[in-house]
Structures are given as structure tokens and as C-alpha cells.
Design a protein around this nucleic acid. Sequence first.
DNA 1: CAGTGGTCTAGACCACGGT
DNA 2: CCGTGGTCTAGACCACTGT
Lengths: 233, 233
Amino acid sequence: MRSETGNSWQAIRTEVLRRIHARDWPPGSLIPNEADLAAEFGCARTTVSRALREIAATGLIERRRKAGTRVAVAPSRRATFDIPVLRTEIESRGARYGYALISQGLDVPPPAVRAGMAVPEGARLLHLSALHLADGAPHVHEDRWIDPDVAPGILTVDLGRESANAWLVANMPYTDGSLSLFARAADAGLAERLGCVEGAALFCMERLTWIGDRAITHVQLSYAPGHRIATQL
Amino acid sequence: MRSETGNSWQAIRTEVLRRIHARDWPPGSLIPNEADLAAEFGCARTTVSRALREIAATGLIERRRKAGTRVAVAPSRRATFDIPVLRTEIESRGARYGYALISQGLDVPPPAVRAGMAVPEGARLLHLSALHLADGAPHVHEDRWIDPDVAPGILTVDLGRESANAWLVANMPYTDGSLSLFARAADAGLAERLGCVEGAALFCMERLTWIGDRAITHVQLSYAPGHRIATQL
DNA sequence: CAGTGGTCTAGACCACGGT
DNA sequence: CCGTGGTCTAGACCACTGT
């Protein structure tokens, strides 16, 4: 019963996926172990291992030593998004990228930001507000806090010319970060800056990045109404 | 100059990441090839390959045959989200999961849905509206269209008892899908069902799944105000 | 304890793509 | 062309964990 589907790990992945979708191996069932599959496909166990590892990374199967490999019952699948670099995102749509600094100063951050960045109460951080433009139209509003103790060089940069983000990615590679996505209504200031009505539903992204155990920056991006991010499953 | 950081691929990954963050290998630079690194770390080339492949998957380095491996200049990093299974998501917060079917019927879908699912004009699809509850409070509103030609069994299911999603994941494993995230304002109907004010900004997720070249279902999930999804970078 | 996945090795050949 | 990453092999040992 040699299938001889081919001996590349991708071919094996395809065949395994086919069997799962065809319900040869229904949800919850145990699939043959690596050695048996290797024998069936006529390849090395390493190759089967690679194929199954890639499938497991998508959440469709679950693997445990001794217990074997099982088809996930409720496949809580994983999706991968590219975190957009704004300039690239805008230019890839054929639009001209623009950046406009709105304000800049040393302020005491609001409690939510202060807690997220774990800075002492009363500490002052560099606070920026800026717009990213596509063909001159507001595309994203950026509200950013930067700890100047962690990234001292930022104070010497002319942030009207170079975006803080560009400077940071080039000079302060982070070691850890978190990202969250949510929706919020446009307040009066955002509505004016983004050119939308007050109360409009905005898609927002909040990022917090660290170097070791020190927070570098907290940024909230608010997209103009209608923005979506998409991915394949 | 043997580093002897250890010979596991994870140790090598850690060391390579350290060098990138330490700017030993600044953005845009070429790092040594696999063979050289293997010699330096005193391990097989396969092991180095594995470590670099894992890093490349995060977008921090870019690899091309002959050109070698380069530290990404604008690390358009990738983030991975677990697509939540609603029941699991709610129960993992310690809340009781509830499901309430609001309406069900065969309707002609709106143009956007029809185009996304590539069904003929005028075709009727199964249309569901339901709420997912956490401790009895509305958590997510689900608006779903299902093509009964592709998933005929769905018509025999009592959708008041079993959620359409549960039936589909168990009986109609998809081969392809797309997912998009966006924000929208609550209309009157959603506001009433979710118990929020009309116009509230809602975080929404739209999924479209296929078996081969036929669309199974289109679903839009609208979360009650305040919902976020988060991930590590 | 024993079965299973996880990993490492040394070597080989191949595919891509810059020069 | 030929250097580089991509993959495969056969075998080995190890780590975890269910029984």
C-alpha cells in the first residue's frame, strides 16, 4: 500500500492534510507514528517529522511524546499577520507616503501607558503625535510615548524630518514586544486629524516594545475609517 | 574563537538574536553562511539551518540562495494570533458559555457576501444570526451565511442547540480560508443585541472559508465594546 | 518502563540566482 | 559558473510522559 506521494516534506504535508480533510483521520483521532509514516511514504523519519511539525505549527494537529500525534478536535488555528511598516504599506498601494509631526514634548503619561511601560510615577516621557499620509490624505494617526532614558539618542533627532518609528527600528532593535488590536471611537481631536466624523469607529493597534526589562516605546496607531488587515488561514 | 554557546538549535538561535540585537550584525548586513557558523559553533550545518529558519520565520532575517542571509532593514515582523474558539475563549476566562440563536432562514445575501463567496446572483443561502454569551452577557454577535449546496448536512441540524460553527468545524474541515479584522460602528440592531449604545465602536472579525474552490461559509463576528486581541512579538 | 516525538550528526545532492 | 541555502538520508541518542 505504498502511497509514493513523493518524498519531499511538502508532499507529505499535503498528503497528511488531504487525509485529515478527507476524514481518513477524523478530528480527535491518533495518526500513525513517524516511523510508520516514514515506512509508508518510503522516506526518512526526519522528513515526516518536518512535515508534521509544520502542520502542528498551524494548530491542526497536536503532538506529544509518547502520546503520539492527534488531529485537533477544535482546531484553534493560528493566523499570521505581517505587522505593516507604514511607509511600505502605503507605497505598496501606489500612493505617496507622507509624514507630519503634530506635536512633541516631555509629558507625564496617562496611567495606562505608565503602567504598561513600568515607569515611575511622575516620570516624564517624550510624547509625540503625528500623522502618516497616503497621497496627502490622513491614513494613520500615531500617538507615541518614548522613554528617553532608554533611548537617549531620540532627543537629538529632528522628528519633523525623520519619523520616530524609523529612527527606533534602525537604532533600537527591541528584544520583546506585545501588540494588541481593538476598536475605538474617534474623539474630537482624532476626528479632526483623520478627517472623519467624531464618533467614527477606528481600527487601532497598540504596540509596546522592550529592550530587556526596560520599555522603549508605547505607540497607539489609529487608522482612518474603513481600514482592514487581512490574512490567509 | 569558539563560542561554544551550546549545540542545540535553540541555543544557536539565541546567540544569533543576541548578535543582531547587540548590533554585531547590524540591519542590512550579511551574516556568515551556514557552513561557517556551523564550524564556529561546532555543530552540524543542519542545526544552524534550523536556527536560522526559525528566525527567518519571524521576519528578522531574510535568506536567499547564493545571496546569503541578511539582517532585515525594516523588520516587517510577523505576529501570530490564535484564532479564538469562542466557547474556549469565554470559558478560559472563568465565565459560563452561552449560545443563543436569534434568527435563521434562507435569504439572498448582500452583494459583498455574494461576491466574496462567489455564489450565483439570486442564489439563496442559509443565513444565521446568533449571540455568544459570557455568563449570560452578550460577548459576540455572529452573522453567518452558509452555502447549503456545499454543506447540505447543515439543514438537518437543530441550530438552536448546536452552534453552526461547532457543527462546521466538526463536519466540514476547510482547506482554505481568509480572515480580516476591522472596526465598525454598531447599528441599531447590533446595539440592541450586544447591549451597547448605537454607534459604539466594535471590533470585528470576518472569516471566509473554502473547501477546494467552493465557499462554505462567510461569518462576521462583532465583539462587544472593549474587546481586544493581543499577542507577543 | 517503554513508546513516541525531538533533536543532532555527517554527508550528499539539488535548486536557485547573483556574477 | 558556482556559492548559498534547501532538503533528504540513515542512524543515533535523548526527553518526555502515559501506563
